[in-house]
Simulated scan of single mutants.
Amino acid sequence: MPLARSLSRVLMERKATRRERSVFLAILLAVLAAIVAVESVTPGDLKVVLFASLVPLVGALVLSVLTTAALAALAGICIAGSYPLFAPHERDPAQMAVVLAATWTVGMLALLIARLGTQRQSLLEQTRSAAEAVQLALLRPFPLRTKDFEAYGVYLAADEYARVGGDLYELIESPFGTRVLVADVRGKGLNAINAGAAVLSAFRVAGYEEPDLSDLARRMENILDRYNEYAETIGQEPRHVTALLVEFEPGRELMRLVNCGHLEPFTVSGPGPRQVSLGEAGLPLGLGFLVSDEERTRPVVQVGLPYGVRLLLFTDGVTEARDGRGVFYPLAGRLESWTGLEPAALVREIEQDLHRYVGGRLQDDAAIMVITAR
């Protein structure tokens, strides 16, 4: 798999280092020399040297336009020179003209491929820059800090050409304590990003104003409902969002949580990891219309959090990641051997192990967040 990713980086993105390009060019020159050598020992009617015209085509996948042009010229010289050297009895001008015209045409095609590849690489870099700008506008970079807590984490996009998707996270300092959001929008693409932006903006504003977490969840859902109404008017599919809200009370070793259909977090400490039981999960945001107004109120669960214990939050891109046999990533089992790691190191270990487990390619976006007292 690492080899496949390397080939993808070189061929699809044209992100080859100078050394890689030099090695690639040396291989092509060796192939060109081998073709000429084989031509010198084979019967004249086989015309093995004509394969030399394919060498610049292969080179165009990685090399620059100028280097490809030089390779095409060298291939043409090899073909033109092989006829009088190795087949002096074949001096048909018409045949030579056809061969040289074909070689010239293939060389021009190689130049076109190299040029288009360079333009594609430039466009890809511009697109990535735009995606990174969107991510920075939507999600703040880790680590996140308040007066009493800090969060380390990572956002892993399933699409290696993207930088942001439908997973969300945030940490704010409100008058009611440090508040945390981790959420996952159903679906992918720009529509999911827009729905996520609505939820995230609602959390950032209402998180400072609503004293009760269940009221905060309701207000976030109201904002999402209004976004979904607008989305339907322009022909887009409405979205729902699983979310977990956490509030750390100032000066006390406890936290309050509201679960809107999200995955339960883990506490990580010396004795080992423990999944925080939140009981029956509430409905995801955006699905409250399925129940009565009374049932839309999501319960607040209060849980102790001793000083020094770290809280691990994540999205389903982590637990639903699969290996080559289709087995889900065993997060709980993996945490057993990482309980002594510092928050930043714990995030890095999960990220690296997750990539190894899936062979380098995630099936879904994933967000990982570790919160600890300062």
Rank of each mutant, 00 (worst) to 15 (best):
L313D: 05
A131S: 11
F314H: 15
S174A: 10
L257D: 09
V291W: 13
S201D: 01
P250C: 02
S277T: 06
S6P: 00
K15I: 02
A114S: 13
V154E: 11
Y152I: 00
L112G: 09
L200K: 11
I79H: 03
I35R: 03
S214I: 03
T146I: 03
S214A: 15
L11R: 07
A192S: 15
L346Q: 11
D225H: 10
Y208E: 15
G360P: 09
F149V: 01
E125T: 15
A344F: 05
Q126P: 00
E221M: 07
E170S: 15
A133H: 02
H240D: 08
R334D: 13
T146R: 02
Q275D: 03
E294P: 01
E39M: 02
V300K: 05
V41L: 05
S64H: 07
G326M: 08
A344W: 06
E39K: 02
W338S: 08
I27G: 14
E253H: 02
G177C: 04
E342Y: 11
L54E: 07
L168D: 05
E264D: 13
A151S: 12
G235D: 08
A75F: 02
M12G: 01
T105Q: 08
L257V: 15
G177A: 04
G117T: 14
A130F: 09
L116P: 02
T339Y: 12
S201F: 00
T242D: 09
L139H: 05
I368H: 05
A37N: 07
V164R: 00
E232L: 11
A102I: 11
V241H: 07
N191T: 15
D167C: 14
R19W: 07
R5K: 04
Y155M: 10
V134F: 06
N191L: 06
F51S: 14
I77D: 00
A131E: 15
P238R: 13
R226V: 08
R252K: 13
E294W: 05
S129R: 13
R298W: 04
G324K: 05
V134G: 08
L311D: 11
D159H: 01
D225M: 04
G279W: 10
P84V: 12
Q352I: 06
T267N: 03
I113H: 02
R179V: 08
R252W: 01
R145I: 05
L200C: 06
F248N: 01
E221V: 10
R18A: 13
Q95N: 03
E249R: 09
G304Y: 14
L200M: 09
F266C: 11
R19Q: 08
L216W: 09
V241L: 05
A366W: 08
E264S: 14
Y152P: 00
L61S: 12
E90Q: 06
W104A: 15
V182N: 06
E209L: 14
M108I: 05
V62L: 14
D45M: 11
V182L: 06
G177H: 02
L46H: 10
L213F: 12
A101W: 06
L74H: 03
L245Y: 07
G107A: 12
A202L: 03
V99E: 10
M369D: 01
T17R: 10
L362G: 06
M220Q: 12
Y161T: 09
A345S: 12
T372N: 08
G304Q: 15
A130H: 05
I27N: 10
V246K: 04
F149N: 04
A69K: 00
Y208P: 04
T178K: 02
A114C: 07
L313A: 05
V23Y: 14
I234K: 04
